[in-house]
Design a protein around this nucleic acid. Sequence first.
RNA 1: GACCCCAUCGUCUAGCCCGGUCAGGACACAAGAUUUUCAUUCUUGUAGCGCGGGUUCAAAUCCCGCUGGGGUCGCCA
Length: 446
Amino acid sequence: MVKVRFAPSPTGFLHIGGARTALFNWMYARAQNGKFVLRIEDTDQQRSKKEYEEEILRSMKWLGLDWDELHYQSHRFDLYRDMAQKLVDEGKAYKDGEAILLKTLKDDIKIYDLIRGEINFDTSNFVVRGEDGGVELDEHNQPKLKDEVLIKGDGSPDYNFCCVIDDALMEISCVVRGEDHISNTPKQILIYKALGFKIPKFAHLPLIMAEDGTRMSKRMGAVAVSDYKEQGFLPDALVNYLMLLGWSPGNNQEIVTLQQAIKNFSIKKVNKAAAAFSMEKLRWINGQYIKQTDTEKLTELLIPFLEKANYINQDFDRQGLKSIVELFKVRLSTLTEFLEWTDFIFHDKLQFDPEAKEKHLSQDRSKEFNLLINNFKQVENYDAISCEEAFKKTVGELGIKPGELVHPLRVALTGKAMGPSLFDIVAILGKERTIERLNSALKTDS
RNA sequence: GACCCCAUCGUCUAGCCCGGUCAGGACACAAGAUUUUCAUUCUUGUAGCGCGGGUUCAAAUCCCGCUGGGGUCGCCA
């Protein structure tokens, strides 16, 4: 049976690279009807924080990556110490103060990697180097091999040691992790061999690089999964984007749900080369998901953002909000963009786009706006269609082309040069606010 | 520096394993159509097998070298 694991360390938030590793593990497990283990590697007592652990679990759930088992390494310290003692008793390891180290023997290590094929290491290269970078020699004038730390000086177990014990005892069939762990693998295999454990298969995922091809780092802006949530990305869209980094469903399909993905996911078809992260494409995918989301659901998703931005409070017109969402849905790449588009609906003080104001409101519109106000006033059923009729009547009376009045009206009402169908906006604002805004546009003119 | 990994449009990728399809799709970009604007949608276009050797009738595909990029060299994980 396929059994895989994701093993984050709670020394920071779940970042995008970790999420991708988790996702591929998850897809592999679900595609093979196997098990997915979540293991919290909290052996570093100083740096591990409960809040990070909670955040990681929260992000995993948000992404929809459920797990079958949850383990904490901090609960297994006795096990690791017993294992280390056993190796000491067998003469394979030795004590150095409180620490316990595994003697490194000369060995050719073969790794079978499901993604990369065979990878070879010679432990003769694991030499101890002095301050000057030169290789240190042992009593026989041979290069001294670097022994592997099993238990650290403070009595806590070392990463490679717990990792091996857990992967073996949890019966992980394939270790799926980032490429940055390739060089840990031979060290771990030495430990598998010393302990007499069965060596699992490995699959080293290509790394995700920043947009410019360099290493991912905080300066990239959004690294934590929670950042993407805050910026208004949908979990399904993020997951969709991430799965396309290093893998393809193979049928020219770009919009792929997790359910569809696990139908033809194969760990062997994962790409070997590192991939550069593209915010543009993520935004496009997110926009696709937003368009697919039904307005009712989308409205629910937007409410927390609207509350946080003080656009709405406890009692708001849910039906009204839905119709606003319907109007802007098609032009959203992220949830937060809704806030930028609709500020003029939720706030009466308009933020004018300077360019738009200059272009459309700098000349005297009093004649046009006054007539428009009169005609809007007479509209009984103030909906988009009636408003459009009133507008057409106005341009007819003025003897001008609609285009000449459409843009000034839009800027006067919204402060922006662009937006959805103007008459939908007029209707949403309502008669009173429309007239109010036209009046204040007249005032600023004079 | 040592060891290891990798290399198809600007970016993500299909194709590579089992050589022979104008190297396919998507984002971005450009042009056009639709639209009162923006966006959406649709159509079209620009753009790629890093280089050099082999093997072969034939190489993106197999082999070698080079170059380039990346990772690791902690009693962090």
